[in-house]
Design a protein around this nucleic acid. Structure first.
Lengths: 149, 149
DNA sequence: GCCGAATAGTTCAACTTTCAAGAATGAGTC
DNA sequence: GACTCATTCTTGAAAGTTGAACTATTCGGC
C-alpha cells in the first residue's frame, strides 16, 4: 500500500536491531558534535572544512581540482563551492585556474592554511584519540583495518 | 605549544588508525546522507525531524516536554524550537502549554503526524536495513547489543 | 568546423543549524 | 513578599547546506 506499492508487512527491526541502531545514531551524533565544537572553538571552522584542508595538504602541490576534492570529501560540488569561498575568505585556500581545462579550478592550500593545520592538528588528533581510539581496545577495531594495509 | 601549552610531540595516529578513522568518517557520512535523502524525498523532512516524530509517537499521549525531547534526540533546545516550529507548520506536531509549569511546552504528535509516520516507516526501515543490517552478519554487531537487552 | 550532449563549477533561493541574547516562570532564602 | 538565581523556551542573525537552474567549456560524431 501507500507509495511502497506492496501490501505485505515490511520486515521491521527486531528489538535488538532497534537498540543497536539507536545506539549507533547516538554515538555518531555525539562524536560528530564533539569534534565540530572542538574545531569550531580552536580553529574557527567546522569539522568538514578542516577535513578539506587536510586533503589539500596531502595532495601534490597542495592543490586539487574542485571535483576531486568534492569526491574525496564525499560532498556535493555545490557545498564545496560555498566551503571554498569561505575558506578563501579566511585566507586558508586560494582558487587557481586550471590551464588545461578552462572550466576547471584548483583549490590550493595557502601558507596560512598550512599554518592553521599545524597549529590545530595536535588538538584535533588528541580529540579523535580520546573520543575514539582510547576507548576501544585494538581488537575492537583492528579487524576493520584489514582493507587499510 | 601554542594553545596546547605543551612542547612535547603529540601522539599522532598510526597509519592503521588514520585509515580506520577515515573509513569511519566515510561510512557514517555516506549513511547519514543516504538516509537524509531518502526521507527528504519520501517524507519531505530530514532524518533528524523524522526521529523527533518517532520519539513522540512512542511517548505517553504522544507528547513530550521540549527539553525531554531535545535530550533524547541529542540536540539543543534552540534547534528543537526551530524544528518544532517547522513541523508545526507542516501540521505534524502541535505545541501545548504545560499546566503544571507555565514555562513549559509539550510537543504533541498530531494525527497527521501519525499518518506520515505510518506511511514512511516501512520505507525508512527498509533503507536502514539495506544500508546497515543486511550488510552485517549478526556477529558483527550483536556484541554491541549486550547493553540493549 | 558545427552541433548536441556531457562536464566543471557557480549561483540563487529555500531551508537548517548555531550561538548569543532575551522573556517568562519557578524555587530557594531572607 | 522581594531578591537572586536557575530553568524553560524562544528569537534573531549569521553561517552552512541543499537542489535546481545557470554559464562556460569540452568532447564526440558528423
Amino acid at each position: 500500500m501507500g507509495t511502497m506499492g506492496d501490501t505485505t508487512e515490511p520486515r521491521w527491526l527486531t528489538d535488538e536491531e532497534q537498540c543497536v541502531w539507536r545506539a549507533y545514531l547516538h554515538a555518531t551524533t555525539l562524536l560528530e558534535d564533539h569534534l565540530d565544537r572542538q574545531l569550531q572553538r580552536d580553529a574557527g571552522m567546522p569539522h568538514i572544512y578542516y577535513g578539506l584542508l587536510v586533503q589539500l595538504s596531502q595532495a601534490p602541490r597542495r592543490r586539487l581540482r574542485m571535483t576531486e576534492l568534492a569526491k574525496s570529501a564525499k560532498i556535493t560540488r555545490s557545498r564545496l563551492s560555498h566551503a571554498v569561498a569561505r575558506l578563501e575568505k579566511s585566507g586558508w585556500v586560494r582558487r587557481e585556474d586550471c590551464p588545461s581545462d578552462k572550466r576547471g579550478q584548483f583549490a590550493r592550500l595557502t601558507d596560512e592554511g598550512v599554518e592553521v593545520l599545524r597549529q590545530n592538528a595536535p588538538g584535533h588528533v588528541a580529540a579523535v584519540r580520546q573520543a575514539m581510539f582510547d576507548r576501544l581496545s585494538p581488537s575492537r577495531w583492528s579487524s576493520s583495518a584489514r582493507s587499510c594495509a
